[in-house]
């Protein structure tokens, strides 16, 4: 309609910028994956034939699943306590979640390196205390990656679960206890099922964020344990195998979109990204 032109013009700058500076480069990645080194699906065949491709996918999935499971478990406990806390206590608990969320991921990885490396604070402390004689291998392996990734993901797990838990009427728990249910019974039969949509949303969020995560695995994995994001970087910057890297990037995007589509049937994903109206 003609009289809406002005409002469409407001959308135009963001839309143009997104199309030209965001969507176009990404579309190019998709194109490269079927165009280089030669047109066709050759790169995608490597998914079935190349052992190194399969290995990186398996490693990534394993680390993502472990990370998601631990982050959900820790996040659930934290969210549960926050949801049932008094108004004042809740503010402090929330701060404990939000501060790490916004602190630079590099700074966090750096702090973990400081703590976990062979001459790090933990190993030195344990040796000084006489608990161990040889330093433990806490970083530059899969353990280090998981420790750092869970640390990054817990806040993302807490927020959707907390939102779902706060919608549970706390009188229901009181009612269940009042009818003679034990704390554990009331929790597992009343609270847990009602907070399940939040758990699923949190799981989806953490899983898709973990899939493409670069900085923490690269720093704490020390180049020995490769996840897809670092593998893609390696293919492109170091080995100049654009087609293969772009193929993996495409697979990564498709995996994330597929996860979102599948789970959008189960939970309202709009809430995850603060859909506003």
């Amino acid at each position: 309609m003609r009289r809406d032109t002005g409002w469409w013009l407001l959308i135009a700058p963001a839309f143009l910028l997104l199309t030209l500076v965001y969507i176009a480069p990404i579309a190019q990645v998709l194109a490269i994956s079927v165009m280089e080194p030669s047109p066709g699906l050759g790169n995608y065949e490597r998914l079935f034939t190349s052992e190194s491709v399969q290995r990186v996918i398996v490693t990534t999935l394993r680390i993502c699943i472990i990370t998601t499971a631990i982050a959900l478990l820790l996040g659930y406990g934290l969210a549960y306590v926050i949801a049932l806390a008094t108004e004042r206590a809740r503010r402090w608990w929330l701060l404990a979640v939000l501060v790490p969320l916004w602190i630079s991921v590099l700074v966090r990885a750096f702090a973990w390196v400081t703590l976990l490396r062979r001459q790090g604070v933990i190993n030195e402390g344990l040796i000084a205390a006489g608990v161990i004689t040889e330093p433990l291998a806490l970083v530059w392996n899969e353990t280090g990656i998981v420790i750092g990734m869970v640390h990054y993901m817990v806040p993302y797990a807490v927020l959707p679960m907390l939102a779902a838990m706060r919608e549970v009427d706390p009188r229901l728990l009181a009612a269940a206890r009042g009818m003679g249910a034990s704390r554990g019974f009331a929790f597992s039969r009343v609270f847990l099922p009602l907070s399940m949509p939040g758990v699923i949303a949190a799981g989806v969020l953490v899983f898709i964020f973990s899939l493409g995560f670069y900085i923490t695995p690269a720093l704490l994995g020390g180049g020995r344990t490769l996840m897809v994001a670092e593998w893609i970087k390696l293919q492109i910057l170091d080995l100049l195998r654009w087609g293969l890297g772009a193929m993996m990037a495409t697979v990564l995007v498709l995996a994330i979109l597929a996860t979102l589509v599948v789970f959008s049937r189960l939970v309202n994903l709009r809430r995850l990204f603060g859909g506003g109206a």
Partner: peptide, 14 residues
């Protein structure tokens, strides 16, 4: 939603 690595490699060429 889309991992930065995907955007970064696309942007590098672009």
């Amino acid at each position: 939603i889309i991992p930065s690595i995907v955007y970064a490699i696309g942007l590098y060429r672009y």
